[in-house]
């Protein structure tokens, strides 16, 4: 791995984390959504750097494109774009509890990071072939064909559910 690669890997990772922190601390839902889109773009860059180009493209199209647009659409539809007068951040005890949970999880990460025990046996890194999409598509339509078809049923159920839940009662 060259220095160029390493530098950009860390750069995108750090930008992703900074954007995520900004996302959680913004009061206006629109600003929060835009910071989250920034995080997702950085994650797409990380996917591309880890030889998952197709996942990176899907990340930009589906997550940063479709899902976040739906979120912003709902924020605009319900006119929630402005930060409310009363802060929606919980106070006192709950915040303390959330901070403690965060510290606990971070401590866990650092323990795993510093763990010098015998490393798990790692299988040889598979040599990736030049084709990008067929590597993902071949297992998707062979081993995981049943799961793929069930996903389509899930999407149908989600569409019907969303329409039924969001439509106005006709009286």
């Amino acid at each position: 791995m060259g220095l160029f690669y390493t530098f950009h890997f860390y750069l995108f990772g750090v930008i992703a984390i900074i954007s995520a922190v900004a996302f959680v601390t913004r009061r206006s839902p629109v600003a929060a959504a835009l910071w989250l889109v920034n995080t997702m773009f950085c994650l797409a860059a990380l996917y591309v750097m880890m030889d998952a180009q197709f996942i990176g493209a899907i990340q930009v199209l589906v997550y940063a494109g479709a899902i976040m647009v739906v979120f912003l659409f709902v924020v605009m539809l319900l006119n929630l774009g402005h930060a409310s007068d009363v802060t929606d951040i919980v106070g006192g005890k709950t915040k303390l509890a959330a901070g403690l949970v965060g510290l606990l999880l971070l401590a866990e990460v650092f323990v795993l990071w510093k763990d010098d025990g015998a490393p798990a046996p790692v299988p040889a890194q598979q040599e990736l072939e030049p084709g990008v999409i067929d590597q993902v598509a071949a297992p998707l339509f062979r081993e995981y064909l049943l799961a793929f078809e069930i996903t389509s049923v899930l999407l149908l159920a989600a569409i019907v559910g969303a329409v039924v839940l969001a439509k106005r009662r006709v009286t």
Binding site: V21, F23, V24, V90, A97, A98, V101, G102, L106, V109
Partner: peptide, 9 residues
């Protein structure tokens, strides 16, 4: 972790 803290706070 940031996501968990956001959900909680």
């Amino acid at each position: 972790i940031i996501g968990v803290i956001g959900v909680l706070t």
